[in-house]
């Protein structure tokens, strides 16, 4: 009997869901639109996969101080710290070339700066901090305390009111504002609401961050970034020791 060709039955295995970072990195770009404004920001449509904001790695402000600025590094550093903490506060981002120029490519979130609250018909006496979960405020305040954020205002944190969630953007001036600036509205909100005490979840996150510091130092080069990381490590230790975000003087 002649041997019949053997056909194996192949079923299409379930495809693992592509990560957002992977889509940002490799997704086919459908359309690029420049936004009106001084900072060079573009809205990029990714074929079948939503939209992202693209920001050039340098703008004029950074160019004049380029020795201390590296936008991709700083945005990526903030994203990496957030990832290690597991806080899910920084929208997914990657470094990518768009139209021949490198920059930060970050998922466009369905969220708005606090000042957008009008469209949600928020009563005048209700502040933004009443419209998101306290755990989100605490996480964001801890994050800002850790990175030494002194440039966090209503224009660079976003609210997803449906999810009662906070997103943090614009970490490009982080280095510049280590020693100056006026602090973080999120830290002030946590202190004002009396929710600055860190809970077990944050303790675990901070301990995890402490264990990951060497990995971060290997990943991010440059003396300025390393100085930021030294500050992060020091403040993580302080938070664990004190058990809460200390009052600020700004």
């Amino acid at each position: 009997m002649s041997e019949l060709p053997h056909f194996e039955k192949h079923e299409t295995p379930p495809q693992p869901k592509e990560s957002i970072e992977s889509i940002l990195e490799k997704g086919e770009i459908d359309r690029v639109e420049s936004l009106l404004g001084f900072a060079n920001v573009k809205v990029v449509s990714i074929k079948d996969d939503g939209k992202a904001l693209f920001k050039l790695s340098m703008d004029e402000f950074q160019e004049t101080r380029k020795k201390i600025f590296a936008r991709i590094d700083l945005e990526a550093l903030a994203g990496e710290i957030d990832k290690i903490l597991g806080f899910n506060l920084v929208p997914p981002l990657v470094a990518r070339e768009v139209e021949g120029k490198m920059g930060v490519f970050q998922q466009l979130m369905d969220a708005r700066p606090i000042e957008f609250s009008d469209e949600y018909e928020v009563p005048d006496l209700v502040g933004w901090s009443d419209m998101v979960d306290n755990t989100e405020i605490l996480k964001a305040a801890v994050f800002d305390y850790l990175i030494g954020a002194k440039d966090r205002h209503g224009g660079n944190f976003l609210l997803d009111l449906k999810a009662k969630k906070i997103w943090l953007v614009d970490h490009d001036y982080l280095m510049y504002f280590q020693e100056r600036g006026w602090g973080s509205d999120l830290i002030r909100a946590a202190l004002n609401k009396g929710i600055a005490k860190i809970d077990d979840y944050v303790v675990v996150a901070l301990e995890n961050l402490q264990r990951s510091m060497d990995e971060l130092r290997l990943k991010f080069k440059g003396e300025e970034v390393l100085a930021i990381l030294r500050g992060v490590e020091k403040r993580a230790g302080e938070l664990l020791e004190k058990g809460q975000i200390p009052p600020i003087n700004t």
Binding site: L35, G37, F38, P113, G155, N156, D170
Partner: peptide, 11 residues
Amino acid sequence: KYHFRSGYLLA
């Protein structure tokens, strides 16, 4: 222009 630079708000 430096304060509003996120893209969500842009000056």
